[in-house]
Design a protein around this nucleic acid. Structure first.
Lengths: 340, 340
DNA sequence: ATCACCCTTGAATACGTATTCAACCCTATT
DNA sequence: AATAGGGTTGAATACGTATTCAAGGGTGAT
């Protein structure tokens, strides 16, 4: 019947061995004779001993903890990613210390310092960016940092994104093939590579067919801004016949404005295309045609690269782009010859 | 220009003081002469020194870290709570170590042990329950644990929930006042107090008017199960004229089945009421009448109680219930005299 | 039978900080 | 002027574990 804190010393005393022997039993990859191992393990079980991770980390220099900073948790894409990230890192033996951050660089910097104080082995920045002062500091500390779904001008930072530029281009091809002539774009925040690259891809894809966007409005990754932008597009002047929205989260708001305020039915009166393919996009209410960001593969890539950098197998930064298909549903007119 | 790890020893050497003095400068509430404090702080700044939290925790026994275990992250209510929780705990100086768990007791137990190994100061279980073996262990370790949005038969555990029983009763009053006669319930998982209490409240509220539920089906907090249950309620036999759904997350699935499969419009052909009042409930697509769970106040209560237990100010467990209003929107017929 | 060698184990130490305790100086009081 | 007292500081130690190093014991070969 154990009471308070039981240490490796206590187990050693109970098993009649030394403290280092107890430590060796609980350290994978270290040999101990079967007889002693058995004695130690039974003693440990009876006392309810479990190694103190803090003390272990202090001496090994490995906390087996990854810092995760995330914004935009109202966008379900990040919720799905977080869930997968948690599972994958746990399988690799790592724990997650999580922080929500506003998207101001100053806020992020402060949080990163908190994480560094906790001796995290690596840091994942999901949908937020880092200041250059910060990345400098990280290089000094030799703590790997990787960006998830966000690029960075500083190429010494690793990042994992979907093929945003190619994705935007795919949407252009699809909408042009569908015979649309006034293709508008409610973009993601242009201050983020994610929003910017998708927009550039769309423009390039349209240009290939001698077209230009009917209109471009920054939706700032916000439902409210996107809804306002949608209203603006249909008030005065020629209306668009298709809208590419910078992510699904905003696209849902746009669909609601069209359907419930303007009386326009997506897929019939106007075509809507999103980006992400979150679970909600498949709901019968939305049936959203969208570019899939393969969250699973993106998470796998993030974990793989981050651990490689932590273990020193890949000290050089990499910029990984993961391609995703266009998922065709009912929210946009389907060109002849394309299958849903 | 700092390079690798800089310790309090390095700062002490640079400032010409002893290591304990450096420690004192960085320990709030300890007096050091202004002259030395200044020397230490400038030396620390120049070297880029920050205290190692691990070493500090090892000696103080306070990790300033809270373990958070959460399931059902696809339900946005928990996302909203997580966001608020993160901010509130950070304001109080605590960090979060987060784990996703399947809802099996064995899974939860394993994760809790991981957390204990990390010397967390307290544990929050959001929407998962704990085995009795586990709670015993926690009492021995003297680590406070609190349940968020879930009750427990073991009354030695603190918990914060909304007033689920009263909430279910409110829905009954509302639907009866609206003149509904065949009130069905697609409940939350009956293995969870949250699902069970809301159901009991509904039944009691109906009984007050001499009514019984038209049907009760367990929706298991799952969209798929809820959708199947909705189809079942309208296939053969008299159809319900109102459905109380155990949470908003399931209610959205039910609304979709009604509207897009059965051609029934919520609020006109049949009344739908949910529970939670997540942000999505206010979307124009759903206009869901629902019982609000005040996530902010619930989170505040969780943090307050947990920290009280950690600091020993409130060693006794408490079961806090927070009342929330019925938010009337368009998905259910509004009784005469009730205002939206 | 002796020696070399490897494998197992315990003693000592390190990780980076907070805290106890004794020494010290400075001030104020008689 | 001498002493008591309070407030600062440094030396030593503790937190719980992993790791280095030396000692010990056993096995094999000559």
């Amino acid at each position: 019947m154990p009471n308070t804190k039981v240490t490796s010393q206590d187990v050693a005393r109970a098993a009649g061995v030394s403290q280092p022997t107890v430590s060796r039993v609980f350290t994978p990859g270290v040999k101990v004779s079967a007889a002693l191992e058995d004695k130690v393990k039974t003693a440990a079980r009876e006392l309810g001993y479990r190694p103190n991770t803090l003390a272990r980390s202090l001496i090994t220099g490995q906390s087996m903890t990854i810092g995760l900073i995330v914004a935009y948790l109202d966008n379900p894409f990040y919720t799905e990613a977080l869930e997968k990230l948690s599972k994958t890192l746990k399988e690799r033996g790592y724990n997650i210390m999580i922080f929500m951050a506003a998207n101001h660089a100053s806020d992020v910097d402060g949080v990163v310092h908190d994480l560094l104080d906790h001796q995290v082995d690596g840091i994942i920045l999901a949908s937020v960016s880092a200041s250059s002062a910060l990345t400098e500091r990280l290089l000094e500390e030799a703590v790997p940092l990787i960006l998830f779904n966000r690029g960075h001008s500083d190429k010494t930072l690793s990042s994992v994104t979907s093929a945003n530029h190619a994705g935007g281009k795919k949407v252009a091809e699809f909408l042009v093939a569908g015979g649309h002539e006034r293709i508008a774009h409610i973009s993601g925040w242009q201050g983020a590579s994610t929003g910017f690259d998708r927009c550039e891809g769309l423009k390039e894809g349209l240009a290939d067919h001698g077209l230009t966007p009917h209109a471009i409005v920054d939706g700032l990754f916000s439902r409210e801004a996107a809804a306002a932008a949608a209203r603006g597009l249909f008030s005065g002047g020629p209306a668009p016949d298709a809208i590419f929205v910078g992510n699904d989260h905003m696209a849902f708001a746009v669909i609601e404005v069209l359907r419930n305020e303007l009386g326009l039915e997506p897929g019939k009166d106007v075509s809507i295309v999103g980006y992400d393919d979150v679970a909600m996009s498949a709901w019968s209410t939305f049936e959203l045609t969208t570019v899939r960001q393969p969250a699973n593969r993106m998470v796998d890539a993030v974990v793989e690269q981050l651990i490689a950098q932590i273990e020193g197998n890949a000290p050089d930064a990499r910029h990984i782009e993961i391609d995703g298909p266009l998922i065709i549903r009912g929210s946009a007119r389907i060109p002849k010859g394309w299958s849903a």
